[in-house]
């Protein structure tokens, strides 16, 4: 296990500045800032419709922000270094191989087996050696506890198993950063734990992660930092101890009250 680095000294993996986004007349994000250092687990919290998922999707340009910049290890995402030209599909694809993503509804490829889902991008996008990728993919499935399902199609798996395949698939790219978009929101309550356990292990092993979640216990126990959003703005940001025990704003207090009442 890698000992946790001092967060303040670790190199910056991802920096987002002044991200704004509207859908028509509806402003979803206003001037969002986020810096993620190596080994950090940043949890984005906030009520439904606060813009958490949209912000996460702006980080790898699945959603094109109207303003602002995203830098992955200093390299601009979405806009070419030479001037203000939006990247082509191929250029964006190349940079996205360095950012893994786990989806709320898994978004596995149903025509491929579990093992093929995990091997697909390393072989066909990163063009790595097939035998090596296969060994790694099998090891990853072992790690998320579904090695016995390798030859099955996703349709045969439970939600929790699908999401663990989703995580293995993202890890197979050896990304600099992992994005989680509400990874447990579509799961039956009794399946949430198995997915969170895998994510907890990843955090402990020093994976750099940005997690949009409604799992307050996970954020409190695992996050190195929480960012609280409301109506497309960052309302509060800080250590989980601080946020969960001494929230500074009324909005955060209200939000936490609703969750502790459950």
């Amino acid at each position: 296990m890698i000992p946790p680095m001092d967060a303040a000294e670790a190199p910056v993996v991802l920096a987002a500045h002044g991200i704004s986004k509207s859908f028509g007349a509806n402003t979803v994000l206003t001037d969002m800032e986020l810096t993620v250092r190596k080994g950090e687990t940043v949890c984005l919290l906030g009520p439904s419709g606060s813009g958490k998922s949209t912000f996460l999707r702006c980080l790898n340009w699945l959603e094109e922000p109207d303003a602002g910049s995203v830098l992955l290890k200093g390299q601009r995402i979405g806009v070419r270094a030479s001037g203000n030209i939006v990247m082509s599909d191929g250029e964006l694809a190349a940079i996205r191989t360095r950012i893994g993503m786990v989806f709320q509804h898994f978004a596995l490829w149903p025509h491929l087996t579990v093992l093929q889902n995990v091997m697909e991008a390393p072989i066909h996008v990163q063009r790595r050696d097939k035998a090596e990728v296969r060994r790694e993919a099998e090891a990853l499935l072992e790690r998320v506890g579904i090695a016995d399902k390798a030859g099955q199609y996703p349709a045969r798996l439970s939600g929790g198993q699908k999401q663990r395949v989703g995580i293995a698939r993202a890890l197979a790219m050896k990304p600099d950063l992992l994005l989680f978009d509400e990874p447990t929101s579509a799961l039956d309550p009794e399946l949430v734990g198995e997915v969170l356990a895998v994510m907890k292990d990843l955090a402990r092993e020093g994976m750099t992660m940005v997690v949009v979640t409604h799992e307050m216990a996970f954020a409190r126990d695992v996050a190195s930092r929480v960012v609280f959003l409301d109506r497309g703005r960052i309302v509060e940001s800080g250590s989980p101890e601080e946020f969960f025990t001494r929230p500074k704003t009324d909005r955060a207090k209200q939000f936490l009250l609703r969750y502790s009442a459950q």
Binding site: G90, L92, A94, F103, H105, A107, H124, V125, R169, M173
Partner: peptide, 16 residues
């Protein structure tokens, strides 16, 4: 569309 989106997120260009 979610399958296309995950393919995009995993760095697949349009043709792939």
């Amino acid at each position: 569309s979610d399958q296309l989106e995950s393919a995009r997120a995993f760095g697949m260009p349009r043709a792939l």
